[in-house]
Amino acid sequence: MTQLAVQAEEPEPLASRRAAGSSFYLAMRMLPRARRDGMFEIYSFCRHVDDIADSAAPRAERLAGLERWRHELDAVYAGRVAPEHRGLAQAIGEFSLRQEDFIAIIEGMEMDAAEDIRAPDLATFDLYCDRVASAVGRLSVKAFGMGEPDGERLAHHLGRALQITNILRDIDEDAENGRLYLPRELLHRAGIETTDPCAVAAHPALGQVGAALIERARDHFEKADAVMDGSPRWMVRAPRIMGKVYRAILDDLAVRGFAPPREPVRVNKLSLLLVVLQYGFV
């Protein structure tokens, strides 16, 4: 039986069910059981804090919810594990997951919860990508079995590549929610002076910003691929699938362009299945 087979006789943990809607679900499913469960716990944590940051609750309430997670992590790392955090505690112990990486993710969520991000400078843009994506990668590579420095390098580059792709894909959705993640310097370089999200989304020079970020994302994808090319195939099977899927989204964005009206670009299920079949076996 391959590791792709689902062991139906074993009940799925809640963390697994929370991950079922993710485009990364099949990649996580192919990991050995302990590593898979660890990834589901990491993903579940990210979903919890992301849901808080993106909720319709008042900002003070969202920030308080994220602060509660800080205290809950303190308790877990101190050995005071509530029943609902037993799976997370097991993953932390088994894979030596660092509290600072969980905190970095919370700090990224706080950036969204505290105010609507609008045209951050490049340094803040990179910090945001590090917190909400590369920090997730730093946790994930430990569950994959990667050590340092390769794991750190992969988390850095693949995390940023995925997040930049997300930002480019979600420009219209973010604008509707009052957010604009595109870097201020790139907007100015394209002659876009406004930071109003809807105005930027409709600007005829938006394609220049999109092209610059596509180039940046491709550079990160190439550096992530170089790390994975030098690693055992079984170890990078899941991140390889994640990278290939999101690289395809980025390529679709480049072909579609950024002139309004823009058709949404989403993961094609058939393409996802083909990537899984190509990279899902040792």
Rank of each mutant, 00 (worst) to 15 (best):
G147R: 12
E148A: 15
E148M: 06
E148P: 05
P149L: 13
D150R: 02
D150A: 13
D150E: 15
D150L: 01
G151M: 03
G151S: 12
G151F: 01
G151W: 00
E152L: 11
E152V: 00
R153Y: 00
R153D: 13
R153V: 03
A155P: 09
A155E: 09
A155R: 07
H156D: 15
H156M: 09
H156G: 02
H157G: 03
H157M: 10
H157F: 15
H157Q: 12
H157C: 12
H157I: 05
L158N: 08
L158Y: 05
L158A: 04
G159Q: 10
R160C: 06
R160K: 13
R160D: 01
A161T: 04
L162K: 08
L162S: 08
L162V: 07
L162H: 10
Q163C: 04
Q163K: 04
Q163T: 04
Q163D: 02
Q163L: 04
Q163N: 03
I164W: 04
I164V: 14
I164G: 01
I164N: 00
I164D: 00
I164Y: 02
T165W: 05
T165L: 02
T165Y: 03
N166E: 03
N166S: 04
I167Y: 14
I167G: 03
I167M: 14
I167H: 14
L168P: 00
L168H: 02
R169C: 09
R169Y: 05
R169I: 05
D170Q: 05
D170H: 04
D170N: 13
I171D: 01
I171A: 04
I171N: 01
I171E: 02
D172H: 03
E173Q: 14
D174S: 11
D174W: 10
D174H: 13
A175Q: 01
A175L: 08
A175H: 05
A175K: 05
A175R: 04
E176V: 15
E176C: 01
E176H: 04
E176P: 00
E176T: 10
N177I: 00
N177M: 15
G178N: 06
G178E: 01
G178K: 09
R179H: 14
R179A: 02
L180H: 12
L180N: 13
L180I: 08
Y181C: 12
Y181K: 04
L182F: 12
L182E: 10
L182W: 10
P183Q: 05
P183F: 02
R184D: 15
R184N: 10
R184K: 15
E185K: 07
E185I: 03
L186N: 10
L186G: 02
L186V: 01
L187V: 11
L187D: 09
H188S: 08
H188A: 15
A190F: 08
A190Y: 07
G191E: 11
G191V: 08
G191P: 03
I192P: 10
I192Q: 14
E193V: 07
T194I: 12
T194V: 12
T195L: 01
T195K: 10
T195F: 00
